[in-house]
Design a protein around this nucleic acid. Structure first.
Lengths: 106, 106
DNA sequence: ATAATACGTATCCATTTGGTTACGTATTAT
DNA sequence: ATAATACGTAACCAAATGGATACGTATTAT
């Protein structure tokens, strides 16, 4: 039984590098699909599919303006990622601390 | 031409919920494979495959102790996730701020 | 020496993923 | 009215993913 429940979390949204790049672009401000697609060496429908996933996982929202669709960053769900990663912070800070004291031994 | 370059980033490591759970467990301390596998309703080889991916993406390390393999969290790569998510923080804080002032208008 | 344990790996399989081209539709330009 | 633009979606496809079972090997227990 391969995979009963497909992952609906925001982690799937950011798993793909193209989708991360789209989000990075949207951080600068809303953009229509064509502008987003122009930045990648992929077909526009491919970008549309990525946008659909981002939409369904509520990481972006869409607004119709004439024949364009403005895509806008909806960062609320991304907070889940930040929340998940947070407890790990102590670990790499500890490691960096160890490295620091190791270097200072020289 | 579907996908020239497979994603080797840490984002792939944390894309799968089982792997995130493994990492969460390892935050409490190193563990042998059987203990990790016991926590999931998956076969041990399935967990071994997840561990291999986590190993290859340098999110965990393996150390042989007798016939056991101790897996340990290696959080350095996870910092990339934290670094990536960081700039988005301003956005959801802004949204929460807006909500707050909206509520205070009442 | 033999059996049991703790793994990793090989093989196989169904599903998902991420891409493509072809096409349909709403909106704007001519 | 007709053409062009800006999309979304459908159909299709190869590769990747995540699972299972079967098996091999090193280590420990008997």
């Amino acid at each position: 039984m391969p995979q009963a429940d497909p992952d609906r979390s925001v982690f799937r949204a950011i798993a793909d590098p193209t989708r991360r790049a789209i989000l990075d672009r949207l951080r600068l401000g809303p953009a229509p699909v064509n502008e987003l697609a122009a930045a990648f060496s992929q077909s526009r429908p491919a970008i549309s599919k990525h946008l659909r996933i981002l939409r369904e996982l509520n990481v972006v929202s869409e607004q119709k303006y004439g024949r364009e669709r403005l895509y806008r960053l909806e960062p609320a769900e991304l907070k889940d990622v930040a929340d998940w990663i947070l407890p790990y912070r102590d670990f790499w800070q500890a490691s960096l601390g160890n490295l620091k004291s190791y270097l200072e031994q020289e």
